[in-house]
Design a protein around this nucleic acid. Structure first.
Length: 596
RNA sequence: GGUUCGGUAGCUCAGUUGGAUAGAGCAACAGAUUUCUAAUCUGUGGGUCCAGGGUUCGAAUCCCUGCCGAAUCACCA
């Protein structure tokens, strides 16, 4: 039981005993006491005057007196306005501390038996990943780990958008001006190579449009009739008709891109349990359209196109099948959702997709509901805002896109520079150093992005992101490294860390009870974050804990003086801090080094 | 125009089911290193929580109106 629940329960008993009124413990408000007041937890008593018929102050006093004489764990109380501040005894904190230490599975919630699929990343195979994808990938990866920590069976998946006219554009440009260039022959990473031809296509296209306009064609018509664009469309049709030459080229270039993506994912420390390819799923959903027509939830227009009328729900009419019978994006999504739920027997499905698709997912859910699927309510769109740069939005046309690989490299380099400046790693092997630079650089990047509320448009300042102070990943990594350093030193000195020293009368300083309080709140923080699909909550928790530890570290000579039991108890405490930091940062996908 | 989401310190962001004098970091300034790692810590200054109204013991938080910003409203994906 958490301290908050404990107090609520006891307070409910107090009210029962004092005023002979029943009040549900869950309805009572208990919060952590603010720093400037004496006490550990605070019961808000304003609303309890109705039971006592007295002022909040008197009510607080009465309940406080009852608790301090009837609840041995409560050592003191004071009342300020309508707030009853309660202090726990040293015995209680020691007990709580022992519980945390002895729970090998601390912070991992019991199994829910629920199976959840989470789809994220979902890249197009015509260009490399950029900063926007990084936010997506990091969110998806950390949320999947968070849901696992919450006791769910999680399947990570990605849907590779490997077909469509945008892919044909890269292919076409490669055919025209590529001279047979390959990743091997050019030394370029596959996704970058293909991306270059996507850019090359746009150059060709732009010139064609210009010359058509110069020849007297209106702009909008020129944009539709540029020869290369028409050619790309013909290529798409050939692809759909399984034209061998087109398919071979497509398969070859896609394999380059996918290999490039794999490297980026590996550098980010991300993997998927299941990879779907749009080229194999894009025809799904037509069955559902038929079903919807039979059920009368869809309508067919005279031209043969099929629609779902959502005007009663405050939305528009949504197209599901074109007049020629071909499907559109949402048709495919309906089909894949149905397939996944039935194939995997899912309880929930989370989609990590940018907020420009909020409307799409609103519609998707609504249509699935109209089709009568009971799981339609268990679809969550984890929507995230755009990443902007100090000089504005990223625009691929203007070349202001931050490339994922470049960024990762840049973070690594900065971590390396800063580490070299500190000069603390001279005796470390080169191999370990490389690992460490990567861990720090990536930790900085991941933490910077994950700590921001997903739905907010965020500003990414490349310079500031590589800050190793303050609320950053490296700060937490550094805190961990310091703890490990102390533990190493303790081992050298032969100081034991025997759990038997944890007796109920071990004296604790205020800073130490604060640390225990924080540690103890971790499981409920995980539950809360899992509920809200918000790894940012975990990031902020980790920072709070690291900060609290650093303050403690500064004013407490951990290895100096004191009795053996006290010394041993302190070491166990900071060891537990390190272990909870590892758990929390593990959810964010951030590694913690033993030294740095 | 409709819908959805944002607006908190100079900047980047927290702020729990409505609770006490709204918090961090960065930047600025002033301090602390014979140390268990100073990549740290302490202090100072900095606020019309977009504006106005409402609900109540109590509002950054909930409701209404307005202002500003973003996304979206495709036979694109």
């Amino acid at each position: 039981m958490t301290p908050e629940n404990f107090i609520a329960t006891k307070a409910s008993e107090a009210i029962n005993s004092l005023y002979n009124k029943h009040v549900d413990a869950a309805s009572l408000q208990v919060q952590v006491t603010r720093k400037e007041f004496e006490g550990d937890y605070t019961l808000v008593v304003f609303s309890l005057s109705r039971f006592s018929g007295s002022t909040p102050e008197n009510t607080g006093k009465a309940i406080g007196e009852w608790m301090s004489s009837n609840v041995p764990e409560i050592s003191a109380f004071n009342v300020a306005k309508g707030f009853l501040n309660l202090s726990f005894s040293n015995v209680y904190w020691n007990g709580l501390f022992s519980e945390i230490v002895s729970d090998a599975n601390f912070g991992n919630l019991p199994s829910t038996g629920r199976k959840i699929m989470i789809e994220f990343s979902s890249p197009n195979t015509n260009k490399p990943l950029h900063l926007g994808h990084i936010r997506n990938n990091l969110l998806g990866d950390s949320v999947s780990k968070l849901l696992r920590a919450c006791g769910n069976n999680v399947i990570t998946s990605t849907l590779v958008n490997d077909r469509g006219v945008h892919i044909c554009k890269s292919m076409l440009a490669w055919e025209k001006v590529g001279n047979g260039e390959t990743p091997e022959s050019s030394g370029k990473k596959g996704d970058h190579l293909v991306g270059d031809y996507y850019v090359a296509f746009n150059d060709i296209y732009k010139k064609e449009v210009e010359s058509l306009i110069a020849g007297g064609m209106p702009e909008d018509e020129a944009e539709k009739n540029a020869p290369s664009l028409l050619e790309a469309h013909r290529m798409l049709v050939a692809w759909e008709h399984n034209d061998k030459q087109v398919r071979d080229l497509w398969a070859k270039m896609n394999s380059w891109v996918l290999k490039g993506f794999d490297e980026t994912y590996k550098a980010l420390g991300i993997s998927f349990d299941k990879t779907y390819f749009e080229s194999r799923t894009y025809l799904l959903g037509k069955e559902l359209v038929r079903k919807g027509l039979d059920m009368g939830v869809f309508v067919k227009d005279p031209d043969g196109s099929v629609w779902c009328d959502l005007t009663d729900d405050g939305l528009d009419r949504k197209l599901l099948l074109r007049g020629d019978g071909t499907s559109v994006y949402i048709t495919q999504d309906l089909g894949t959702a149905e397939k996944r739920f039935s194939e995997y027997n899912l309880d929930e499905h989370v989609y990590v997709v940018g907020d420009e698709q909020n409307y799409h997912f609103q519609v998707l859910k609504l249509i699935l509901k109209k089709l009568g699927f009971p799981w339609a309510d268990n679809i969550y769109h984890l929507s995230y805002g755009m990443v902007e740069l100090p000089d504005g939005k990223m625009k691929s046309r203007e070349g202001t896109v931050v490339d994922a690989d470049d960024l990762i490299e840049q973070m690594y380099e900065t971590a390396k520079e800063t580490s070299l400046e500190s000069g603390k790693l001279e005796d470390m092997s080169d191999e370990d150093k490389e690992k460490l630079y990567h861990m720090i650089g990536l930790g900085a990047l991941k933490y910077f992005i994950i700590k921001v509320d997903p739905k907010k448009t965020m500003l990414f300042n490349p310079k500031e992101s590589i800050d190793f102070n303050g609320n950053t990943g490296p700060f937490i990594q550094y805190t961990h490294a310091r703890i490990m350093s102390i533990l190493r030193k303790a081992d050298e000195k032969g100081i034991s860390r025997d759990l038997s020293c944890l007796k109920s009368d071990l004296p604790l300083t205020q800073k130490e009870t604060r640390l225990i309080k924080l540690l103890n709140s971790y499981p409920s923080k995980v539950a809360e974050a899992g509920e809200a699909l918000s790894p940012a909550l975990i990031a902020n928790f980790a920072y709070d804990l690291a900060k609290e530890f650093n303050q403690y570290y500064h004013e407490t000579p951990i290895l100096k003086e004191s009795f053996p039991d006290l010394l041993s108890g302190r070491l166990i405490l900071i060891d537990t801090v390190a272990s909870v930091l590892r758990r929390a940062m593990g959810i964010l996908g951030i590694g913690l080094p033993d030294r740095m």
